Amino acid sequence: MPAAQFHLFAQGPRPVAPFSHAVESDGWVLLTGQMPTDPDAPDAPLPDGIAAQTARVMDNLALILGQLGLDLSHVVQCRAYLTAFERDYPVFNDTYKSYFPSDRLPARTTIGVTALAVGALVEIDCVARRPEDI
């Protein structure tokens, strides 16, 4: 089995802690939880509201996947963390599901938490599987 590859991309969102954007081993790609920060303006205020923050997080995940030659269609599992679960869950779901075909939704767990880094309302991590022909 080949050694794990640790990926940190200059074009990716600035890490808010000591981590790699993704780690890959044996065709599996584990993406670190992404925050709703703007990769082009990491010190800019976060987007307002759960819909805008969810979209930014999904776009950041797609950006990291793109750096690996993958896209959201390769995602098989996600974990989402919400700081205001009861208030934000329905709108979060509407935004999240718009990123996937209705017949190819990844497995998912959504967890209510008390706080997230940078004051975010949402964070999402995921696992992707590299096709054998890539």
Score class of each variant (00 low, 15 high):
26 D>G: 11
26 D>E: 14
27 G>A: 08
28 W>C: 14
29 V>D: 04
30 L>C: 13
33 G>E: 14
33 G>Q: 11
34 Q>Y: 09
34 Q>F: 09
36 P>C: 07
40 D>V: 08
43 D>W: 08
43 D>R: 12
43 D>T: 05
43 D>V: 03
45 P>M: 11
46 L>F: 02
48 D>Q: 15
49 G>V: 02
50 I>V: 12
53 Q>V: 05
53 Q>G: 02
54 T>C: 05
54 T>M: 07
55 A>N: 08
56 R>K: 15
56 R>V: 05
57 V>K: 04
58 M>E: 06
58 M>G: 02
59 D>Q: 13
60 N>C: 08
61 L>C: 03
63 L>V: 02
63 L>M: 11
64 I>M: 11
64 I>Y: 07
65 L>H: 01
68 L>Q: 04
69 G>L: 09
69 G>C: 02
70 L>C: 01
71 D>W: 02
73 S>R: 14
73 S>K: 12
73 S>P: 01
73 S>A: 15
75 V>L: 13
76 V>A: 11
78 C>T: 12
78 C>K: 06
80 A>H: 02
82 L>H: 00
84 A>P: 00
86 E>P: 00
88 D>R: 05
89 Y>T: 06
92 F>T: 00
93 N>F: 12
94 D>V: 14
95 T>Y: 06
95 T>L: 11
95 T>S: 09
95 T>K: 10
95 T>C: 12
96 Y>D: 02
96 Y>I: 05
96 Y>W: 14
97 K>D: 11
97 K>A: 14
97 K>I: 14
98 S>N: 10
98 S>H: 07
99 Y>R: 06
99 Y>C: 02
100 F>R: 04
100 F>W: 01
100 F>Q: 04
103 D>P: 01
104 R>V: 07
104 R>L: 13
105 L>T: 07
106 P>A: 08
106 P>H: 04
107 A>S: 10
107 A>F: 12
108 R>K: 14
109 T>A: 15
109 T>E: 15
109 T>I: 15
111 I>G: 00
112 G>W: 05
114 T>Y: 10
115 A>N: 07
115 A>L: 08
116 L>A: 06
116 L>R: 04
117 A>H: 11
117 A>M: 13
117 A>T: 09
